[in-house]
Computed example of a mutant assay.
Amino acid sequence: MTSAFLSALGGRIAERWLAALALPGLLFLAACTTAMVLGHEHWYDVERLGAWLDTLAASPASRSAGTITLVATGVLAGAAVAGAAAQALGAGVELLWCAEPHGPVLRYLADRRSRRWHEADAVFRTALVAAGRARIEGADGADRLTDIAERRHAERDRISSAPPRHPFGMGDRLAAPAQRLWRARRLDLAAAWPYLWLLAADGTRAELQAARTRLSASARLCAWGVGYLVLALWWWPATLAGGVAVASGVWRGRAAAEAFAELTEALADLHVRDVAASLGVECEGVGDRALGERLTRLLRKETEAS
Rank of each mutant, 00 (worst) to 15 (best):
V286P: 01
L70M: 05
Y228Q: 11
G242N: 08
E282N: 11
A223R: 07
V71G: 10
A82F: 11
A79P: 11
L233E: 13
H118Q: 10
V81L: 14
L38F: 06
R48Q: 10
G132H: 04
T303N: 14
C283F: 13
A35S: 11
R212P: 08
P104V: 10
R133F: 15
G11T: 10
P101Q: 00
A219D: 15
I136D: 14
V286I: 08
T55C: 15
A139M: 01
A57W: 07
A14D: 10
S62V: 00
R135Q: 10
F5K: 11
K301C: 14
R214F: 12
T69K: 10
A266R: 07
F5M: 13
A256I: 03
T213M: 06
R220K: 12
D111N: 01
R113M: 03
A77M: 11
R135T: 07
R107I: 00
G138Q: 00
D172C: 10
A4H: 02
P60L: 10
L128W: 14
L298S: 08
A191Y: 02
T2C: 09
P163M: 00
H166A: 10
L263Y: 09
G225T: 15
A142C: 02
L215K: 12
L70Y: 08
V81K: 03
R220W: 06
G74N: 15
A72N: 04
L26D: 02
W235C: 04
T34Y: 03
E15H: 06
E41T: 04
A276L: 11
A35F: 12
A65Q: 06
P163Q: 00
V286A: 04
F260I: 11
